[in-house]
Design a protein around this nucleic acid. Structure first.
Lengths: 153, 153
DNA sequence: CGATACTAGATGCAAATGCATCTATCTTGG
DNA sequence: CCAAGATAGATGCATTTGCATCTAGTATCG
């Protein structure tokens, strides 16, 4: 190696993230040309998806905010819009008068499932021809590990 | 397997993308709390970075657009702003009167390098403790492969 | 060559975004 | 128990974004 160990480790970390990020952008651009996101902007789908994944069916606004790339105020207003469109319900949190709990309405669940299906088709069309199943599992393992490491601190 | 091969392959592809995407969001959220992106919004940094990576130093607006998650009109106006701030230069493309060529000014290069350095530090702080060097190389290989497969069609 | 279709960017305009700030609720130390 | 500080979310306002459309330069086909 031409550089010191510390420096080359930093460089490797940066290149790893760089590749992950560029790939995310490239796939996202491709997905945006597909059918799924004509119906619903990506950020709105992401909100519906996160709510659909929540086991209890209810999620605090600030928790949701951790999973979405939006500022607190933007998310607050997006949820307001989604509520007006009848896709999401809001309640004051029972144990904390400041908090807001969110859940999908039936219409919201339905829309999420529908868009989700076409979304999954688009993704499969991109990922399947690119990586073998074993490679996909390994990629998933590595990204899971990286993400887990962020949550535990 | 409980499901048919075709279906489970689709599911695997979707879960792989899902994990990649969620990880990108989580890392991005972490990065946004760091010092690097206080100086410059992420999208603007991404534009400066892409220009800095271009070997010839000049890049067509529409090529740049392929690498950035912004609509054509948004990018057009962002570049206009960056030019006003003296970070980017524009010229009409010599071989195509419709096209616009972009490059960084000295101030733009300087700012990119400076923000880039602190950006790299932040990234290293996230990635190094999460994955071994071998895992990082494997992750980079897989994301490179996925991205390459998009470009070749 | 000339008409037609196509492509690269710019622009009007409505909607979405983020920052700073505000209000209301909760927590803590005396 | 209360005052000071912290936290959740909402809101005013300027900026940014994207869609649709427009303009201008280029390619194609008769």
């Amino acid at each position: 190696m031409a550089t010191e160990p510390q420096e080359s480790a930093t460089r490797l970390a940066a290149e790893t993230w760089e590749s992950l990020f560029r790939t995310q952008v490239a796939v996202m651009r491709k997905l945006q040309t597909g059918t799924a996101f004509k119906a619903l902007p990506v950020n709105e789908y992401d909100v519906l998806f996160n709510l659909s994944q929540c086991p209890s069916g209810w999620l605090r606004l600030n928790e949701l905010n951790d999973h979405v790339l939006l500022s607190q105020s933007s998310l607050s207003r997006m949820v307001e819009r989604l509520e007006k469109r009848g896709l999401v319900e809001r309640t004051t949190a029972p144990e904390d008068g400041r908090g807001v709990l969110l859940s999908l309405t039936e219409a919201g669940k339905e829309l999420q499932r529908e868009v989700g299906r076409s979304h999954v088709r688009d993704i499969a069309g991109i990922v399947k021809p690119a990586l073998t199943p074993a490679e996909q599992r390994e990629l998933r393992r590595l990204t899971d590990k990286l993400r887990a490491s962020l949550q535990h601190r």
